[in-house]
């Protein structure tokens, strides 16, 4: 372990505080596959512990952590053979499996299904803004895109999501 012990301890407390949100973000990055999200989050923690991912204070700790989780999840998704044929250039097919829909059927299946129709970038920015209450600027930092690009994805994604949720054949409105 390269980082000083006190630094790791401080990180641990912060990581523990953010763990529920990190889990939600890992799920979102892994097409809501719990196993993959589990592996991605554990690998992200491992990278932080081993010093491969280091926080330099250029953004908030949460923004930095979410960036690490996002990149790790993308790598896990690429590595995962089950999804190889569903992947395109840099992102995966957003269509969730039946188990994924069943998992969240009680409360949010409609939202999950509607989100699955969006592009990965649109899904990410909406998730960061509405699920994690981040600003578009913070979302842009996590996604490693410009603010203008993040804003475009946000606007288009929100419109597309509203259309999907309003569809009578869909799984219903968010309420």
């Amino acid at each position: 372990m390269r980082a000083p012990h006190t630094h790791v301890r401080m990180d641990r407390a912060e990581l523990e505080r953010l763990h529920p949100e990190s889990w939600g973000w890992a799920l979102a990055c892994c097409a809501r596959d719990r196993d993959l999200a589990h592996d991605a989050l554990q690998t992200a923690y491992l990278r932080i512990l081993s010093g491969k991912a280091r926080y330099h204070g250029r953004s908030s700790f949460k923004t930095w952590l979410f960036g690490v989780i996002r990149l790790t999840a993308l790598e896990e998704m690429r590595r995962d053979k089950r999804r190889t044929d569903l992947m395109d250039d840099d992102l995966f097919d957003p269509a969730p499996g039946a188990d994924v829909l069943a998992e969240s059927s009680e409360l949010s299946a409609g939202l999950v299904a509607a989100l699955a129709t969006l592009s990965a970038r649109q899904r990410e920015v909406l998730h960061l803004v509405f699920y994690h209450d981040m600003s578009i600027e913070e979302a842009a930092t996590v996604m490693n895109v410009s603010i203008g690009s993040a804003r475009t994805h946000y606007d288009r994604g929100k419109k597309a999501l509203a259309r999907e949720l309003a569809r009578p054949t869909g799984r219903g409105s968010p309420r």
Binding site: G24, L126, Y131, L165
Partner: peptide, 9 residues
């Protein structure tokens, strides 16, 4: 509405 739905999720 979106925020509420996301918070439920």
């Amino acid at each position: 509405e979106l925020r509420t739905a996301f918070h439920q999720l």
